[in-house]
Design a protein around this nucleic acid. Structure first.
Lengths: 199, 199
DNA sequence: CGAATTCTGCACCAATCGGTGACGAAGCGA
DNA sequence: TCGCTTCGTCACCGATTGGTGCAGAATTCG
């Protein structure tokens, strides 16, 4: 971040701390993750956390960036698949994989943080909602291109297909949170992809 | 509840108060709904709430019963449809209708309350998870009967079909929470039901 | 070395969390 | 009318919420 490194250097690894914070936010959502829970998992004091990351909200945003680059990367990667069908499969299977990783909280951080929030977390809720809307728009644009390229029939509706896929992925995340096994969710994915294009 | 009605009668309508509490829980989830928010919406004091409903958790459970009988009734009703396909349609369209009622919070109370919860609400989270698992089991049993009756092909997997439908319904609820229109979600339902049986 | 700078640990802040004790008002049966 | 029961208001409880002020320790620059 800064090039000057005057003063006492911090005694913890900021990246490692972010990783632990990610787990806590993932598991408990934005408001459910208290400072006590977060700092305990991160192994640092409140004060160090504020000095390093500014704020609970800013910390969450940094965690979100990390999530996007890590477990949530499948969203950006899926649209780079060669065919529309491959995009759909990569997207849904990515959701299953990310939502059922052993040793990590079940489901999707984006879904868990965007639902069921009190009053103090509505800023974050809005951010998450637009965040998820953007990935849906990304899929839609990709399917528009597929129509242009003849990869999807001309009468296919990219908007509806994208909406359908994100809906299934959201459902997969909810099911994973409820304890559904990867195998069961993979079956769901197979069902969703059995007929293509779906619309 | 009680047959003896000695003493001063309560000055509020318990049913009306439950309805307002339902809205607050629906919108903010279990932990996000604070006593202050709840009692303000219900128009009664903390003390009256505790006297009438016992507890925040007990209040939520009573609200849940009310939800099951009202907006969530489509789950029980869907399995009574004559054919498997009609069951699926009733279930998914019920989810869309319940999740996009004007004047009511978007999405499904069950989904919103079961995700993203801190430490104090884990009892409720567990209840909601089993609650949703039960409705999935109800669908599965219904589809088993459909296989027995020849309404579904013998090689159809009731478990997978039920899982698929609940996954889509969960996704619909998430999408609705994010502001998706009833029309858009109805399109998703059409896509999900286009090919039947799906598995 | 000394000065400047930055980190950490502790105690503390006001606000809010879910939940109660006390007490007067209000209604019931007799 | 009286006595009993219940209700509603006010204040309060300890615990926890997100967030800081302060003092001291650690490190780099001059």
């Amino acid at each position: 971040m800064e090039q000057v490194k005057r003063g006492r250097p911090r005694a913890f690894d900021a990246d490692e701390a972010l990783e632990q914070a990610l787990v806590v936010f993932w598991e408990h959502g934005y408001e459910g993750a208290s400072l006590a829970l977060l700092t305990e998992a991160m192994g640092i004091s409140r004060k160090s956390m504020y000095a390093a990351f500014g704020n609970k909200e800013e910390l969450f945003l940094k965690v979100l960036q990390r999530y996007e680059a890590g477990p949530g990367a499948y969203v950006r990667e899926a649209v780079r698949a060669p065919t529309a069908r491959a995009v759909a499969r990569a997207y849904l299977e990515g959701a299953v994989r990310a939502g059922t990783q052993p040793g990590r909280p079940a489901g999707c951080l984006g879904v868990r943080a965007a639902l069921s929030v009190g009053v103090t977390g509505q800023t974050v809720q809005a951010i998450m909602t637009t965040w998820r809307a953007e990935s849906q728009a990304g899929l839609r644009d990709r399917f528009r291109r597929a129509v242009d390229e003849g990869d999807l029939p001309a009468d296919a509706d990219p908007e509806v297909i994208a909406r359908y896929l994100t809906t299934v992925a959201d459902g997969v995340s909810v099911q994973a949170t409820g304890g559904a096994s990867p195998a069961a969710l993979q079956h769901v994915v197979e069902v969703a992809l059995r007929h293509w294009p779906p619309a």
